[in-house]
Design a protein around this nucleic acid. Structure first.
Lengths: 338, 338
DNA sequence: TTGAAAGCGGTACCAG
DNA sequence: CTGGTACCGCTTTCAA
């Protein structure tokens, strides 16, 4: 691989001259500049980004870590993050945790980027605390991690979600409401379960643990399979609250396959408002959060931290990510006649 | 940020000793090693991956470039690539082209990784040719790019796909078959259109250009919208071949909304076999390719190239990526009684 | 306008 | 077993 030294030698110039010329520095005489650039092209010179990063102590890239790119929920998130970091002149790299967390951990533990956005709970909190640094800020989305140079938009360990959905079902006259947990690596499930229980209790509906099912995964298939079990108890259930749309869509299919009419025989509600949720039949009633605004906010904070601008952590933590839960009314929930 | 020099100074040791100790080199006395490692932990030493990469001239990471992470088709691909590169001890980074190709281009043009897998046609061929190098091999998936150190699994510019699907529809007695193009950045569309035309012709069915529609995007919504237009011509159409499942699913919804019965009024077939395709009603007949095997193959070739092992390009190009098209029969196509 | 030299933070050879 | 030293490829003063 040709380096600037080679070019310098060829042209009998100093390396600094070549370096500056290649960066189009006006200090270098125009003729020299062009000469350098031309020969660089001719010999196929390729700049080593790594050497530049080392020297500059800055990569201009941000890493975002997610569990699994296959859920459209994350794709939407990624696309917003991508657009936002670009506004600040940063590049975005993505690491998923599909098969191992090695890539992500290596990039974090060796500070190979300027900052990180974590949207998963599969990376240990101690690990994050160990490597977060004033020169390496970490933003955590969707859950709370205490630590210096770690910025979260959640003020507490486990906020209560799922309130809107549960309230909505109750308002529609349902009382025997099943809850279906998604993957255990999912951040929303425990919170929505929280809210579900809380709302039930405050409506004097006792919590029946046998009505809490576990899909164990966040895929259509997992939703399908768990729903086959639910069908056995179908007589005692008015409505099902699925922890996310992925499993709800699978569940809907299982119900249809069993000739159970949604919403006439049973109502179901999902969570997250995936694009496909409006396309299934009946279209899925679900709950949406404002991912756009919150995501913008997160990127802004990370960039601030990278630039060492002051951040008011207390004020920041007042911004609940995901906290607004808006019911998207469609056709899978029916008001229950009494 | 503390460096090994700081540690060396603190402990009155040489930098090489510290470096080796930190890497657990058995040449270093166990006591010294532990001493070094302990003090490193105490002062919060963090190794600079970038410095290591520069010195070793190797990053151990592979970059994969895709257009858009939100299509589950790509997620599946990513997950296989991820698993495969891990087997060879490499890490995987992902760059999408959602808002700009800057990240991908920077990583390629500055050789910031050991190799690249490109699954998009949004990066110029000349660009790839310029930066591919024996120390920086590039694998191109899904289309053909001529060039040294560029490895493709497609032997020709534009292979013919879509044959199975078109044949299948014809075998089911359909003759007036519409074709719906997906996003123009999609690699499959032109090929499937090729195959569609070819098969029609060989069955003595004249090609009616007015039966070729363009969804212009690969989203559910695009499929929905284009299908609203198709509905106006519905009387002259027996079946629709959508270039991918994404638009087919959207199209299905549009047909249902217009009270058109699939498959009794019209048959539709998609392409790619997305997870959601089995969940819509009626479930979508579609065509699947063996992404798993081909993806494994691609990773193997890239690693070989990185290791400078010989690659038989001619033999390689005999492996058609995506070339096996398997019809997944479900409920959206009906045999036409004559 | 150009160039020598001092790094950036490591690694690895070679001598002791 | 330990340490001096020469890089890896580039940027950036500072002098000439």
């Amino acid at each position: 691989m040709a380096t600037i030294k080679d070019i310098a030698k060829m042209l009998d110039l100093g390396v600094s001259t070549v370096s500056m010329a290649l960066n189009n520095n006006p200090k270098i005489n125009k003729n020299t500049r062009e000469l350098v650039i031309n020969t660089a092209n001719e010999i196929g010179y390729i700049k080593s980004g790594i050497a530049v990063d080392l020297q500059k102590q800055k990569t201009n890239v941000i890493l975002v870590v997610i569990t699994d790119a296959s859920r459209s929920y994350f794709s939407k998130f990624l696309s917003v993050v991508q657009r936002e970091v670009a506004k600040y002149g940063y590049d975005l790299l993505i690491a998923t945790l599909e098969n191992s967390s090695k890539t992500a951990e290596r990039y974090i533990s060796e500070h190979r980027v300027d900052g990180v956005i974590i949207y998963t709970n599969l990376i240990g909190e101690d690990f994050l605390r160990k490597y977060a640094h004033k020169d390496f800020p970490i933003c955590v989305v969707g859950h709370y991690v205490e630590g210096d140079n770690i910025y979260c938009t959640f003020p507490v360990k486990e906020p209560t979600l799922g309130i809107s959905a549960t309230n909505y079902l109750i308002a529609k006259g349902h009382r025997n409401i099943a809850f279906v947990k998604a993957s255990s690596s999912t951040l929303g499930t425990p919170r929505r379960l929280n809210g579900y229980k809380k709302v039930l209790l405050s409506n004097n509906i006792p919590i029946d643990e046998s009505l809490i099912y576990d899909a164990k995964d966040s895929t259509f298939e997992a939703g399908y399979n768990v729903t086959k079990k639910i069908i056995k108890d179908i007589d005692k259930i008015d409505a099902i609250y699925y922890s996310n749309d992925d499993i709800a869509i699978g569940g809907l299919k299982a119900l249809k396959d069993a000739n159970i009419d949604v919403p006439n025989d049973i109502s179901i509600i999902g969570n997250n408002n995936l694009p496909e949720s409006s396309l299934v039949t009946p279209s899925l009633t679900t709950v949406a959060s404002n991912i756009e605004i919150d995501t913008k906010n997160i990127v802004k904070i990370l960039i601030k931290a990278i630039n060492k601008e002051p951040i008011d952590k207390k004020a920041l933590e007042k911004t609940y990510y995901n906290a607004t839960e808006l019911i998207i009314e469609r056709d899978s929930v029916k008001s229950k006649k009494k």
